[in-house]
């Protein structure tokens, strides 16, 4: 192995300093703009800071955290977020795999359709929220009209607490399936052909090939796409804020929306910081669980060692 090591990263006279110099701006920015606020927020979470009552703050230890554990509204929003994330990510994953298989047939014209499908992920999330809110209007909305054409009774969409969560999940699926589709399609189209030819000669059915060849070979790509989506879905704010602001009846009160309310409606910044930290820990746990279950680190390491 020394040969590859030396070919990749040579040690040359006087160059250690260059590397440090090149790293310096990034390290400074990350420390000043990244690490410091983070630690500051950790400190705030141990105080009762609330600027509406003046700038004075008391150190109150873990009281915010103790309170958070009894805050039903917070855990409700965590639950909503988990449901939202799980549903949205799994639906868009399935859709993306199906779309990738379909578009991998590469009939003439599919390239253009594929490009059109990518557009939703590029639309500003606030604009996505606005557009869907227009389309989902119960009385004037085009969705109820279209459903009426094929005989489906009109729905209240985001206006009713029973369908609101489903509605925002639909919007998230619409916006982010293209993202997963883009990645998984790239994965599918770069798969080697020979295993499939061998399987065809062995008499495998298309379904068999999909289960035994396509899916296992796609696993790294699927895992990476899913992980990126989980992290992003967990902090979804823009679309939900524009469509429902967490309502009706807190049916779509995801954690970002709830935190925004605590922080910038009630200005309970000490408590808000504590909740932020709890959220961060929950995200980490979810991600670590996912990483553990899928062997993500091993996939990454394999890629690095190629």
């Amino acid at each position: 192995m020394p040969k590859t090591q030396s070919a990749d990263k040579a040690q040359r006279a006087g160059e250690g300093k260059i590397a440090t110099l090149l790293m310096a701006p990034t390290v400074i920015v990350m420390t000043v703009v990244g690490l410091y606020p983070l630690l500051h927020s950790l400190y705030l979470s141990l105080t009762n800071y609330n600027p509406t009552y003046g700038d004075a703050k008391e150190f109150i230890g873990l009281a915010n955290y103790v309170y958070a554990f009894e805050d039903g509204q917070f855990w409700h929003s965590i639950l909503i977020t988990l449901i939202f994330t799980a549903a949205s990510v799994s639906i868009s994953l399935v859709l993306a795999v199906l779309l990738s298989l379909l578009f991998n047939l590469r009939f003439p014209g599919f390239m253009i359709l594929r490009t059109v499908i990518l557009i939703p992920m590029l639309i500003t999330p606030v604009a996505v929220g606005i557009t869907w809110r227009i389309m989902m209007m119960p009385d004037l909305g085009v969705l109820n009209y279209l459903m009426g054409l094929i005989g489906i009774p009109p729905a209240l969409w985001a206006g009713s607490s029973s369908t609101a969560l489903l509605s925002v999940i639909l919007v998230d699926v619409w916006q982010w399936t293209p993202f997963m589709f883009l990645i998984i399609y790239a994965g599918i189209s770069s798969l080697p052909k020979t295993p499939f030819e061998a399987a065809a000669i062995d008499g495998a059915s298309p379904w068999r090939m999909f289960v035994s060849l396509t899916l296992p070979m796609l696993k790294p790509v699927i895992v990476i796409a899913t992980l990126l989506r989980i992290v992003d879905a967990f902090r979804t704010y823009d679309t939900i804020y524009t469509i429902t602001r967490g309502g009706p009846d807190f049916a779509t009160d995801v954690v970002s929306v709830y935190l925004q309310r605590v922080n910038f409606r009630f200005f309970d910044l000490g408590y808000g910081s504590a909740l932020s930290w709890l959220t961060l820990i929950i995200v980490l746990v979810v991600v670590l669980l996912f990483v553990r279950l899928t062997g993500f680190m091993k996939l990454v390491a394999d890629k690095e060692n190629r």
Binding site: L38, V255, L259, N263, L269, S273, S276, L280, V283, L284
Partner: peptide, 13 residues
């Protein structure tokens, strides 16, 4: 991985 909501308060302050 950091949700922006975590750093928004200290940035605000």
């Amino acid at each position: 991985m950091l949700p922006p909501i975590v750093s928004v308060i200290p940035m605000f302050i």
